[in-house]
Design a protein around this nucleic acid. Structure first.
Lengths: 193, 193
DNA sequence: GCTAAATATTGACACTGTCAATTTACATAT
DNA sequence: ATATGTAAATTGACAGTGTCAATATTTAGC
């Protein structure tokens, strides 16, 4: 590559990197094609060769985050120290940790108005949900509780709690101390001890 | 008012009306100052006299929706047919009904990135939450359950479920039949029967 | 009726996404 | 190696946006 490279060489990954930085720092609105191009050192229309449009870029990012989340969950599940009862809670913990560490990434995951549902995105998310169902079906739930009801309840509760947490809603009410005892108590309401 | 009125006369309410229509029909992104102005029959910069900027307009809308939601809950609570156990569930039902009927309004309520937290917005939301706490503290919860934990859990679960529902996430998994039996079963997990 | 305030218009600026036309670099086949 | 086709980046344009300043018009208070 010459000093003044016409071809960037690795523009696609550079775009994703700069886009992620903008997302983390300033939110999804700051992830504009032109800003990303500027920060990657190319002109404003260069990204079109790698991402058809802004939605495609954001969708690619979101899909990657779901995959990343899935890998984080797998890693936690593989740890030998995880007890039988903790396996379900691994999903809740991993989602909460991800949401608190990367709030703008987490928000993007659910911004379906700017994302394109081309199958990949849903598949990446479903992979996580399906894994949760497996764990849940192997847990000893009370006879009155169906696994699907608990699954939807748990996913809803975790998702709702994370959004409230990272949006600062009910700041004085949700629990911001380390260890998140309130979060654990909430899970205990619907999961077997 | 003359036929070619220079002054609109009731532009503020006309703006809110057109903005709400755009929100319902096409989502929050469609609520642009200029589109609202066009639909209200004024020029593009006229709205500035009534709303400082776009965020102020959206915040005013969101605040109104929270107040509207609060009134709907009050109306339901006043109905004599509501039993003691149902009083808590009124909040969940009212939120779900509002979210399903006006999905884009519901989404706007939580788009803190485009809303201005000037106190009014939070106050309108807190009014609802505080009412829920009152009902919850009067319910006979199991001794192991704190009212605050159940409150945050219920709010999180309801909020999470509604967003999943209106976003079409897990379409085949959540319950779209009338009466929402899954939703009721989820609530039964954390609320006294 | 006069003046001040409120309200609406006009025009401008810097952004944005997206497209078409063009230029440059690379890869592959002969 | 050299020609050629393809991929990648540039340039320029267009319509749309929020927001501001300057201007024009209407209304309201005295």
């Amino acid at each position: 590559m010459t000093r003044t490279a016409y071809h960037h060489g690795a523009l696609r990954s550079a775009i994703l990197k700069q886009a992620t930085k903008l997302l983390d720092d300033e939110g999804v609105d700051a992830v504009t094609i032109r800003a990303v191009a500027r920060n990657a050192g190319v002109t404003h229309a260069a990204p079109v060769n790698h991402f058809e449009n802004r939605s495609a870029l954001l969708t690619s990012m979101a899909t990657g985050f779901f995959l990343q989340l899935g890998r984080a969950i797998d890693a936690r599940l593989k740890a030998s120290s995880v007890t039988r009862q903790q396996r379900i809670r691994v999903f809740a913990d991993a989602l909460l940790e991800f949401g608190l560490r990367y709030p703008n990434r987490y928000r993007l995951l659910w911004r379906r108005d700017v994302l394109i549902d081309g199958g990949e995105l849903n598949a990446a998310m479903d992979a996580i949900y399906d894994k949760m169902i497996v764990e849940l079906s192997q847990a000893r739930l009370a006879p009155s509780k169906s696994a699907h009801t608990v699954a939807v309840a748990m996913w809803s509760m975790v998702h709702g709690y994370i959004t409230l947490r990272i949006d600062g809603t009910f700041e004085e009410r949700v629990d911001e101390t380390s260890g998140e005892p309130r979060f654990r108590a909430m899970l205990d309401l619907i999961l077997p001890a």
